[in-house]
């Protein structure tokens, strides 16, 4: 009788361990998702010896509706399609409409935008087409 009780207890803790391991595995396998929609812009950065730019869509859409940039400021709906360079930004175009030290930090804070891994190609990160058509991203550590 005693051994049977013990066996049941053992089985229960084994089941608990399996459930726990499974949930940890599930938790770890969840893809990261804040960067869904982040745009990496590397039209000129690598060649200029700068890190590519990360544009975090989630950060900006909390503060501005799409139309502010995509209608009023004229950003095309295409990663890398705007031929943005620092001259235009300093001139108040594109990012420079806000990143002028008035609405947002100004251009001397290079590293706040130029923060992507060197060599990252221009892309909309984690986009459906990227995931379905070109799952070439190496596994995360």
């Amino acid at each position: 009788m005693y051994s049977r009780h013990r066996f049941r207890g053992l089985r229960r803790s084994l089941a608990a361990a399996i459930v726990m391991l499974a949930s940890i595995a599930f938790w770890l396998s969840q893809p990261a998702y804040a960067e869904y929609g982040d745009v990496v812009i590397n039209n000129y950065s690598d060649a200029a010896g700068m890190r590519p730019v990360v544009f975090p869509h989630w950060f900006h859409r909390m503060r501005f509706r799409c139309k502010v940039c995509h209608a009023d400021l004229g950003f095309q709906f295409k990663a890398g399609g705007n031929q943005i360079n620092m001259l235009k930004i300093i001139d108040g175009q594109f990012c420079g409409a806000c990143h002028n030290g008035d609405v947002a930090w100004s251009v001397e804070n290079c590293n706040l935008c130029h923060s992507a891994k060197p060599g990252t190609p221009t892309q909309v990160h984690e986009s459906t087409i990227q995931k379905l058509a070109a799952p070439t991203e190496p596994a995360r550590k």
Binding site: A32, C113, K117
Partner: peptide
């Protein structure tokens, strides 16, 4: 996976 962890910013 996007940001360079060594980037100062």
């Amino acid at each position: 996976g996007v940001h360079d962890p060594t980037a100062p910013g």
